[in-house]
């Protein structure tokens, strides 16, 4: 399915003309969990483009190092630290190391997460736990470690959480991630209220489909066909996701806290009065469906 020529598809400005000056976050240090690839790297790249020094937390050193190298290749400053965000001791140690190498951490981007299709009745307890604990426990543990340090130093801070546009609906074959990402939205509102007096802001980006090297649709032809599914007529570009996340962490958004910004090209609003015949996920060749 191609997009008719008379449809108007609007792209964001190119990567080389970001919305912020290169010193917007000069002197700031940002932790990005799961920042070695995908959407985390998108956040880390945009934060670095605005002048922040980046500590990438990753479960494997190799991928975190790749992310850091990519940021340095763009002229940014980044280090890679191995940490499993489900373990509070590892989180504390990673914060210690990041602060020793880069200075006090003033920005936290909670992105670490995973997702894959599996029918709920066939989902093992470990599969359920792996996805929900990285997203829910990881976001909680990193946020509280961050906040304790900011409160002890009597300085403000900003957190941005990576949620998803499907949290208000869920979708079949995604019980683990749909539940976990929705928990992040609620946690955003709760932590924002807890820490408003201390000037620690907590916001959330609920993103639609932003393809990257490790996502299911990495080739250009598939992305065009996927783009045709969305009202906006295209998939998301990683730079626009990174920029809006950076906006929320910056002083431009100094009064914004507890909020969810949806960036999905109206993906979640696609519901029609009439739809194709319903096929139970169990009877589908592919649980999440096929690219049109």
């Amino acid at each position: 399915m191609s997009i008719p020529a008379h449809h108007r598809i609007v792209e964001p400005p190119p990567f080389e003309t970001p919305p912020f000056p290169p010193n917007l976050l000069a002197g700031r240090v940002a932790v990005v969990t799961g920042g070695g690839s995908g959407m985390g790297l998108g956040m880390a790249t945009a934060l670095a483009q605005a002048g922040a020094a980046i500590a990438i937390f990753g479960r494997t050193l190799e991928r975190a190092l790749q992310g850091a190298a990519s940021i340095e290749a763009n002229g940014g400053r980044a280090i890679a630290i191995v940490a499993d965000v489900r373990d509070p001791a590892q989180v504390a140690a990673a914060f210690d190391r990041a602060e020793t190498e880069l200075g006090p951490i003033g920005i936290l981007a909670n992105n670490a997460g995973g997702n894959y299709p599996v029918l709920a009745e066939q989902m093992s307890a470990n599969q359920w736990r792996s996805i929900t604990r990285i997203a829910i426990d990881g976001t909680f543990l990193c946020s509280t470690e961050f906040a304790r340090r900011r409160i002890a130093a009597a300085v403000p801070g900003a957190i941005v959480n990576n949620s998803a546009q499907y949290v208000w609906s869920g979708f079949p074959g995604d019980a683990h991630s749909a539940a976990a990402k929705a928990a992040i939205v609620t946690m955003t509102a709760a932590l924002a209220q807890d820490w408003k007096p201390q000037g620690i802001r907590v916001n959330c980006v609920a993103a639609g489909f932003f393809p990257h090297a490790r996502s299911s649709a990495s080739d250009a032809d598939q992305q065009v066909r996927l783009g045709a599914m969305f009202p906006a007529g295209r998939v998301g570009r990683m730079r626009e996701f990174g920029w809006v996340s950076t906006f929320l962490c910056s002083d431009l958004a100094a009064g914004i806290t507890g909020e969810v910004l949806v960036i999905d090209g109206a993906d979640r609003l696609r519901r029609e009065l009439m739809s194709p015949v319903f096929v139970p996920p169990r009877e589908r060749a592919s649980i999440w469906g096929d690219v049109p």
Partner: peptide, 9 residues
Amino acid sequence: DYAAYVTGC
């Protein structure tokens, strides 16, 4: 245009 993918928010 920096928010070109934000609509219905």
